[in-house]
């Protein structure tokens, strides 16, 4: 990796101050993407601001109808949290299948959501559960937060502090892992909440997206049968040596049906 200045602030305010005015400064959460990128010399930040020392950012609480997860909460902690398992078991299940044990004990929910990797799992949960992303400057609704490939609505010097997930009536996540990397090649999160049914797909496109046709059908009849004839167009889906766009489109249907069946169990 290239040389950079390393900082480990103790508060969000200090972190923001360190990031401000430095164009090439990068915040680091768990470092699960940034560190390999640095090692491969694919990034050359002037400064790395390690959020690991900001204690206020980690932790899980239940606030009314929501489970609020601090940005620096590790995947492993989400997976094993009694609160998450009790209120949104689908989210605990999702977190428990991210990466491998080493990744789950370093990687964080805030880092994953801010990075907006098209193959990350969390974005599907954020969108399907209609979560709210809270930052040091304000709040973002799930819709509109993910703007595209590695692109979010976060502004300069804006750091995610927590994510608030409304408790669903029913929810489930089904992932078809890339055979090599085991990132989601297609991951479908289906949720039935007070505000309706949402179907969010990660891995298949450049960014997480909703399948409105499935949502409408499931709103009327929350069963896998209700969506068995709904085809997702392959246009604009990702294509690589592991999966053509057509195959991914097909898998969206399969994973969505399996997610509905799982949610109904």
């Amino acid at each position: 990796m290239y040389d950079f200045a390393y900082h480990r602030p103790k508060s969000v305010a200090d972190a923001v101050a360190l990031l401000k005015g430095k164009e090439e400064a990068r915040p680091m959460s768990g470092g699960m993407t940034l560190i390999p990128t640095l090692k491969q010399r694919l990034a050359k930040p002037s400064d790395v601001v390690d959020l690991g020392g900001v204690k206020e950012l980690a932790g899980i609480k239940v606030e009314g109808g929501n489970v609020v997860i601090g940005a620096m909460t590790k995947h492993g902690d989400v997976a094993t949290s009694a609160d998450v398992k009790a209120h949104i078991p689908a989210l605990a299940d999702l977190a428990g299948h991210i990466g491998d044990p080493q990744v789950r004990n370093r990687g964080t929910i805030g880092g994953s959501v801010a990075n907006a990797d098209p193959a990350a799992d969390y974005p599907a949960a954020v969108v399907a559960l209609n979560a709210t992303v809270t930052t040091n400057t304000g709040k973002h609704a799930a819709d509109g937060f993910f703007k595209g490939l590695f692109e979010t609505a976060l502004g300069e010097g804006e750091i995610i502090t927590s994510i608030s997930f409304p408790k669903p009536e029913k929810a489930a996540y089904m992932k078809f892992p890339n055979p090599a990397s085991r990132y989601a090649m297609v991951g479908v999160f289906v949720a039935k909440t007070a505000s309706g049914v949402r179907v969010a797909v990660t891995g298949a496109g450049p960014s997480v997206f909703r399948v409105k046709a499935m949502e409408e059908a499931l709103s009327k009849n929350f069963s896998s049968d209700a969506i068995k004839d709904i085809k997702v167009p392959a246009t604009d889906l990702n294509s690589d040596i592991h999966g053509s766009a057509e195959y991914r489109a097909h898998l969206v249907g399969v994973m969505a049906r399996r997610a509905v069946d799982k949610a109904n169990k």
Partner: peptide, 20 residues
């Protein structure tokens, strides 16, 4: 092992793409 047939780039050049 997959090489791009036009450019000759090794597409399966890491564990992210070469399935062990």
């Amino acid at each position: 092992a997959v090489y791009d047939k036009n450019t000759g780039q090794l597409l399966s050049g890491s564990f992210m793409d070469y399935t062990m």
